[in-house]
Design a protein around this nucleic acid. Structure first.
Lengths: 168, 168
DNA sequence: TAGATAAGTCAACATGACTGACATAAAATC
DNA sequence: GATTTTATGTCAGTCATGTTGACTTATCTA
């Protein structure tokens, strides 16, 4: 009904192609998260813990509020998994030197180990998919995903420097 | 540690490229599911209902066990959302004519309407991403996702005919 | 000094997964 | 025809992850 066509509809915009995209994302994402989920279960953790470990690993010294804005969950949801990770010694909190209200987060040795394990299982799957598809396909893959996400999240992928948060 | 290199590592297989892929999938998938989730919430439904509506819509006459094997969830998890959808008149069950133990599932008028609404919000996002990236990128996107999912799910995307389940 | 901000906590709740056990009807097999 | 298997549904309980709203404490800022 929204289809007031102006000119021929490119093949890749046909309804069945769009439908395929929806299912591709469903199946690929399910399998992409499946293996890490199994690994995490051995630690009594879930996907929420994974996301926290990932982003703290990528951004050592990140603050709680920065993490909240990345994950887009509530303070209480984060609190539950974060305090678990801190208690069990996977994440270390240190008060910010500039702003001492902040708790700067970073992975401990134990946290780094788990982070690497998780990364490795995901890397294997991605490397396989990338190799089988080739460099050109990879560029297309990245372009489509980039254009699929909200614009507000895209800068995260272009800037090479970390966000200017208070560091030691 | 698993990096016993034989020859130069292609650029697109470097650690930071793989890391980027992980985050691309996270952000794109989050935004991809965000809008449907909002729509579903108006009906008191969640993402689980969406998946059921989607696959029943795509495969009218699908059986409960076929649906279970696609979704890879337990009978109880499916039962909860499915019986809700049936009770509220979005999905119709009819006993199979060949095997009367089966309950063949299909969308009602009401179900078709919701299915279309949900499809439209997702289509808008995908069409936008596809147009901005171009046909070649789309091919790459599809290739990478296809190679990322388990092989067992891939036939679903190649065969044009529906699975030979009992139909009217 | 007063107000804003960063972080944490408590209580209560919803959703969507899980397990294991059991029931029923119908089909398939011996 | 009797038995076993299959398709579906259901009950009861658990867990992980998300939500809201209210409140506290410490610290920074105007």
């Amino acid at each position: 009904m929204t289809d007031i066509k102006s000119g021929p509809n490119p093949l890749f915009l046909r309804t069945d192609e769009i439908m395929q995209a929806i299912e591709l994302l469903f199946f690929a994402y399910r399998d992409f998260t499946g293996e890490p989920d199994e690994l995490l279960a051995e630690y009594g953790f879930g996907r929420a813990h994974h996301r926290v470990i990932h982003f703290v690993g990528r951004h050592p010294g990140i603050t709680v509020s920065e993490l909240l804005s990345i994950l887009q969950i509530t303070k209480q949801s984060l609190s539950r998994v974060l305090s678990q990770l801190v208690t069990e010694g996977f994440i270390k909190q240190t008060p910010g030197e500039i702003d001492r209200r902040q708790r700067l987060l970073e992975l401990t040795e134990k946290g780094l180990e788990l982070d690497e394990k998780l990364f490795n299982v995901q890397r294997q799957r991605i490397v396989k998919a990338y190799k089988e598809s080739g460099a050109e396909a990879v560029a297309g893959f990245r372009s489509v995903l980039m254009n699929m996400m909200e614009e507000s999240d895209r800068p995260r992928f272009t800037k090479k420097l970390h966000s200017p948060s208070s560091r030691r």
